[in-house]
């Protein structure tokens, strides 16, 4: 290829990046908006309106949705809407803490195993071993051992998800370690640690962010599942999973108690997955259709 031809390809790369943004934009925007609404509602509604997720009023129990009780009431006469808003707190808090911890541990351990051979064989063994179990079963085992609590749910999610992040970080470090720009930096005497932190790790930022976004969504589902089995934050804490669990007795008489939290989980997870899809399209435009000559 002549240099001229090489130059000629540059605008098309820019164009494909533009296309990625145009495609990713709507996904990021819609996902981000819905997620922001859920988060803002859970944070600010309690400040603006009097909310009482634990207020028992037996006279008002199992009322269907109406103008007065927007989403109906549960078996103790508590407002489903109020519990839903507070439940968002718990579900998002658990998932967020788990994601944050996964990120920190995953990046640190991934960097170690990408950088040092000994660390790699030890960490690699452990993550392989963790990936052997059918995911949810491992979470059950951990919670059975540690006992049900919010913190332990966080730990279980971290144990389940951290091997994946380690793999991603490790793979991108190994990919970039032999890249020209790294070799060049090494040649001019940049130290190992600085090389890793300044030059290599930022390159894995994109893929890791994508993975963590999907991980966040997945953590919400796992938390809900564990709560449903009675292994999550113990009642009366109104996590979404707990609400579904408690509502199963009333599925015939008062299905609205169960429908509402499930819809909330679906909406939140869906919006997070949309954000993840959008980020992935931005980070890796190769997944886009190859259009044009």
């Amino acid at each position: 290829m002549t240099p001229a031809a090489a130059e000629a390809t540059t605008p098309s790369t820019a164009r494909s990046a533009l296309r990625a943004i145009r495609r990713a934009g709507p996904m990021l925007l819609s996902g981000g908006t819905v997620l922001a609404l859920v988060v803002l509602a859970s944070l600010f509604v309690p400040l603006l309106v009097e909310i009482d997720p634990l207020g028992i009023d037996v006279a008002q129990k199992l009322l269907p949705p109406s103008a007065e009780h927007w989403l109906g009431t549960d078996e103790f006469g508590r407002e489903v809407l109020d519990r839903l808003i507070i439940g968002a707190h718990i579900s998002l808090r658990v998932a967020f803490a788990a994601t944050l911890l996964t990120a920190v541990l995953g990046i640190a351990l991934g960097a170690l195993s990408g950088q040092y051979r000994l660390a790699d064989s030890i960490i690699g063994r452990f993550s392989d071993a963790l990936l052997v179990f059918p995911g949810f079963v491992l979470a059950i085992m951990i919670l059975a051992a540690l006992g049900p609590s919010e913190l332990n749910v966080v730990l279980a999610v971290v144990v389940l998800y951290v091997p994946r992040v380690i793999r991603t970080v490790r793979a991108s470090i190994i990919e970039f370690r032999s890249a020209d720009f790294v070799q060049a930096a090494r040649a001019v005497g940049v130290g190992d640690m600085r090389l890793l932190v300044v030059h290599i790790l930022p390159k894995s930022f994109g893929p890791v962010m994508v993975q963590l976004t999907f991980g966040f969504a997945w953590a919400i589902l796992v938390e809900a599942g564990l709560s449903f089995l009675g292994l999550g934050p113990p009642p009366p804490s109104p996590s979404w999973g707990n609400m579904i669990s408690a509502a199963r007795e009333f599925i015939r008489t008062a299905p609205w108690i169960m429908i509402a939290p499930g819809v909330m989980i679906t909406i939140t997870v869906l919006s997070l997955n949309l954000i993840g899809d959008g980020l992935r399209d931005l980070v890796d435009p190769r997944l886009q259709g190859k259009v044009g000559p």
Binding site: T2, P3, A4, A5, E7, A8, P11
Partner: peptide
């Protein structure tokens, strides 16, 4: 020798 410049859009 090379041909300078790029193919038009």
């Amino acid at each position: 020798a090379t041909i300078a410049g790029a193919v038009p859009d």
